[in-house]
């Protein structure tokens, strides 16, 4: 997070993490699609010829809070392929919140676990415990066959501390609620650490509501967060 008191600018870094081909870039593309023209910048993709992320994708979003604080959200994806370990470490550095995009297919279970442990290790390398990092998990590719069932995910989500979302990023389904869930977790973390309300009169709830509206979801925040398949209840 970067806070510029002079220009009243807050910059937040959110990272979409996950195994190769789980749909991190597709999530960003869907967010970019959903955002209104005023709020979004160009979606920058540093990829290879075969459309695999080489370094990262970056979606810059800018929103104005009613208090006059300008909030810039930089949403990154990491490259999922195993060989890009060092790049993942660099991209996740300084993240304020992480969305873990898992592939719902049963056959991908091991890759999901492996990538999650990799995230944990990379954060630990920077002296950050994963438990302290604002986190949401998205089970993507719900439209494919041979996926873990909704009921099973709901059952498993109950045991975790992080909110779990279901999505089909290729059709933009569940992408915005997952992002709003992440923003909500991140705001709570930042508020606790930096007292944004006290310093700037920053009203997180109404800010997140504005963001959701600009991303095309005008529902109440509690309704959007209610899209979660579970998890994070004790913090809710």
């Amino acid at each position: 997070m970067q806070l510029d008191f002079a220009t009243k600018q807050l910059t937040i870094k959110l990272v979409y993490y996950g195994p190769a081909l789980s749909g991190k870039t597709t999530n960003l593309q869907a967010l970019h699609q959903a955002a209104d023209a005023q709020s979004k910048g160009r979606l920058m993709t540093l990829d290879t010829k075969d459309d695999r992320t080489l370094f990262f994708d970056l979606l810059p979003l800018t929103f104005e809070d009613r208090s006059g604080l300008s909030v810039r959200i930089k949403v990154f994806t990491v490259p999922g392929q195993v060989i890009h370990a060092s790049t993942r470490r660099l991209v996740v550095q300084g993240a304020d919140g992480v969305a873990f995009i898992a592939d719902s297919r049963l056959a991908e279970t091991d890759h999901n676990t492996e990538s999650f442990l990799d995230l944990q290790k990379n954060l630990k390398g920077q002296g950050i415990e994963l438990e302290k990092m604002p986190l949401v998990i998205q089970f993507n590719k719900r439209d494919l066959p041979n996926v873990r069932s909704d009921a099973e995910i709901r059952e498993m989500a109950k045991m975790g501390r992080e909110p779990v979302y279901l999505g089909v990023a290729t059709r933009g389904l569940g992408v915005v609620p997952c992002f709003i869930g992440l923003l909500h977790q991140t705001w709570r973390g930042l508020e606790a650490a930096h007292d944004l309300k006290g310093k700037f009169g920053f009203d997180g709830s109404s800010f997140i509501k504005d963001v959701a509206t600009k991303l095309g979801d005008p529902r109440e925040i509690s309704d959007i967060l209610g899209d979660s398949a579970g998890g994070g209840a004790s913090h809710g």
């Binding site: 870094k13 930089k74 470490r89 660099l90 550095q93 300084g94 390398g125 920077q126």
Partner: peptide, 16 residues
């Protein structure tokens, strides 16, 4: 340990 890592990305993207 975190300090010894190169900081290119954040400097370029977050600090402009």
């Amino acid at each position: 340990m975190g300090e010894s890592l190169p900081k290119g990305l954040n400097e370029l993207v977050l600090e402009q």
